[in-house]
Amino acid sequence: MISLQGVTKRFAAITAIRDLSFTVQAGQVFGLIGPDGAGKTTTLRVTSTAMNPTAGRVTVGDIDTVRAPEAVKQLIGYMPQRFALYPDLTVVENLNFFADIFGSPRAQRAELIARLLGFARLTEFQTRLARNLSGGMQKKLALAATLMHRPRVLLLDEPTTGVDPVSRREFWDLLTEIHLQGVTIIITTPYLDEAERCTRVGLMYRGELVACDEPRTLRDGLGATVLEAQSAQALQARHAVEKSEGVLTVSTHGDVLRLLVDRAERAAALQAVWQANGITVGNVRVVRARLEDAFVLMLTRHDKT
């Protein structure tokens, strides 16, 4: 449905994305993750026709974004990080305004807006001014406006940043509904637990795609074992084994130590190091890898090469 081939985008001296290639199949929820400045937003912008790539080719539904931007715009709904709602207009007035922009036929408009309001759980707030909505509700309204012309592809740039966990869950419920209707979605997010909800994830770093696969393949194909252990002296325990053989990364989370090791058998040697240093560490166990483990490990390896 979406294909990027050798796409580069330069701004003066800065190369925001470099020789980027990937495809998103119809019906996928594709998550773009990566640190600030990795090029996620630029990738969405060149796909949305908001800007042209410096080199390379982007197609949406086999249509070239540079040659036929208008045709591509019919297919896509793009929700930028700062979606411009009109704060002085009510919820329903905002939707009417976007209906005008998208030229949606008058006859079906009332029905369409009623459906979108229901979908976004905003029906009872339709007469509220947009500026008086909570952050989560504003995001849902922006999503409803983006869906006005029934796009086949949705491009969402960090739609849940700054949104509280309850609203975030609700937003994902809406995305699941859209996904099940067959819409293809690309979403960027700084939340790795959200990336777990995508059918496929691309990890971007310094303008390049470092990895691209299903979340569980990334997790299971980590090439490392994740150990957790408990210690009241977690920080000392961490420093004691940071340089030990077979230890790839260590992090502390409260009194929990999380270690990425090359194989589970390292646990005995680690325990010996802690004992020798007089540090009590208990409950050492192998746990399921998270996407964040894969993310940190890949970026660490990438920096070394």
Partner: peptide, 8 residues
């Protein structure tokens, strides 16, 4: 850390 990436 609102809006700060996982590594930072």
């Amino acid at each position: 850390t609102a809006g700060v990436d996982p590594i930072s």
